[in-house]
């Protein structure tokens, strides 16, 4: 008995020893920057005077929260994330279901679908900015050919955010498709065969078998996509710079401006910490929900 216990302890030690380099690396590249940012957020740290001489406590947090522009950015980001994740999920799940039942030319469909995802967001922004040029772009040209009025895609405060959402969907929907398709292909066949024997319709199979079995994959997919969407910065920088007015001023771009235009790293770190807290809360909630499902 004592021999097996000591072997178990030795195994555990060996396990820790093998994991140590990986854990050390993880600490260095993930936890250290996070703690450094948190430490910076309670100091007056600017790039003009990059030192930790002045402890400010929660001042940077208060300044950020009391700034109406930052609060606007947070709300706008929440709306943006909700819209892109929901629409991308709806389209992604539909396409994944269709592809799952396809037998021929699957690799070709995959190739086409993956093209936008492989493109750099900066390139995506530049291409779409050209396509959507109000007077010289191809989109408005095609609209006028079929009798519609040209649209002010990026210059109207009412339309600009939807244009960004549309471009983001074009770029990222394949990510949803690929993850959901992987989940669908891994589902067991037996429940479907049993349901068919019992005379279940396609819709019944979908709602009573596919959806419940897919739930953990769906939650993880939504979670990953949501975190990526919160960080959207490149498209805004290339396409609108937050304008017209403040119509597309997402929070990541606002943080970038505070850090690299205002050079106020302390306040930018506080803004990032606030954003991180929201993301952690949401992640925690979704993770717990996923655990109840499994």
């Amino acid at each position: 008995m004592s021999r097996s216990l000591s072997m178990e302890a030795a195994d555990r030690r060996f396990g820790w020893l093998m994991s140590a380099p990986g854990l050390a690396l993880l600490l260095a590249v993930v936890l250290f920057p996070v703690f450094w940012a948190l430490f910076t957020s309670v100091h007056e740290f600017t790039l003009i005077a990059p030192n930790f001489d002045t402890f400010t406590g929660v001042d940077n947090y208060v300044t950020a929260i009391s700034d109406p522009a930052f609060r606007h950015s947070l709300w706008l980001t929440a709306f943006f994330v909700f819209a892109v994740v929901l629409i991308e999920f709806a389209i992604g799940f539909l396409v994944a279901l269709m592809l799952n039942s396809v037998e021929r030319f699957k690799p070709i469909y995959y190739g086409i679908l993956l093209c936008p995802l492989l493109m750099n967001p900066v390139i995506v922004g530049l291409i779409w900015r050209m396509f959507l040029h109000p007077s010289l772009g191809i989109v408005n040209y095609l609209l006028t050919v079929i009798g519609f009025e040209p649209v002010n895609w990026l210059g109207s405060t009412k339309i600009a955010i939807w244009t960004i959402i549309m471009v983001d969907i074009w770029h990222q929907v394949s990510f949803m498709i690929v993850l959901l398709l992987a989940g669908l292909s891994a589902l067991p066949r037996e429940p479907y065969e049993a349901a068919r024997v019992d005379g279940a319709s396609v819709f019944q199979s979908f709602f009573y078998i596919t959806l419940p079995l897919m739930m953990p994959v769906i939650i993880v997919t939504l979670l990953i996509r949501m975190i990526f969407a919160v960080k959207t910065y490149d498209l805004i920088y290339i396409m609108t710079r937050g304008g017209p007015g403040v119509a597309t001023d997402l929070v990541s771009y606002a943080i970038y401006r505070t850090a690299f235009v205002s050079l106020n790293i302390g306040e930018a770190s506080a803004m990032s910490a606030i954003l991180l807290a929201f993301i952690l809360l949401l992640t925690g909630y979704l993770y717990r929900y996923m655990r109840t499902l499994t």
Partner: peptide, 12 residues
């Protein structure tokens, strides 16, 4: 001005 010039950079 032309439609959309509220969002034009100098190159556009």
């Amino acid at each position: 001005g032309p439609l959309g010039s509220a969002s034009f950079s100098f190159d556009e």
